[in-house]
């Protein structure tokens, strides 16, 4: 194959793939309209619940080819709220979230598997207290539409669930406290198209 032919094929491939790359739109997480909550069984009595209040991130969302999308989220560990100041302080300590050393929890998607018209599994690296583990998020794309009072601002929304094991991240004291160690995570997230 001549150099000309190879160049022509490469240019054609580039032309074919370029629109796909461009199809992914950039969204930023709307912090005030995002809820990262969790529940963890407390010694069989009840499920203790909590929320992280400060969540930010970026989403590259390709509606035509979801597998071409990606998500990157940062959660401020110190924004934990479990409905008890003392418990929040304890959970932020070195036995659990270790906020002073690891102030952020991050999630970076690595691949996406579409499972339905509006559902997908988003695989990614969840990094918490310095430990990264692969986590699978079951995601539902709920809706996308402009804000009723501002047609130029497009908002999209997702719900996601996942289950993680706290001991996999080094939180061994969970067991001593009769907590979990399985943690059910629920995410409701709205994002604004940029």
């Amino acid at each position: 194959m001549s150099l000309f032919s190879r160049t022509a094929i490469a240019a054609a491939l580039l032309a074919l793939t370029a629109p796909i790359v461009q199809a992914a739109e950039h969204y930023t997480v709307h912090e005030d309209h995002t809820w990262v909550t969790f529940s963890i069984n407390h010694a069989g009595w009840a499920n203790a619940r909590g929320i992280f209040r400060n969540v930010s991130g970026d989403i590259m969302f390709d509606q035509e080819n979801v597998t071409n999308s990606s998500v990157s989220v940062v959660i401020a560990s110190s924004s934990l709220d479990t409905n008890s100041e003392q418990r929040d302080r304890d959970m932020g300590g070195a036995d659990f979230l270790n906020i002073s050393e690891f102030p952020e929890i991050t999630f970076e998607s690595t691949r996406i598997e579409q499972t339905g018209e509006r559902t997908a599994i988003v695989y990614g690296a969840l990094t918490m207290i310095g430990v990264s583990r692969e986590v699978a998020l079951d995601v539902v794309w709920n809706n996308e539409m402009p804000l009723p009072w501002d047609a130029s601002t497009i908002k999209t929304g997702f719900s996601a669930t996942a289950t993680i094991d706290g001991t996999n991240f080094g939180m061994n004291q969970l067991v001593a406290f009769g907590l979990g160690p399985k943690i059910d995570v629920e995410i409701d997230l709205e994002a604004l198209r940029q």
């Binding site: 300590g93 036995d95 061994n172 001593a176 406290f177």
Partner: peptide, 8 residues
């Protein structure tokens, strides 16, 4: 002081 692991 909330440092259960070290307390133990």
């Amino acid at each position: 002081g909330g440092f259960i692991g070290l307390g133990q």
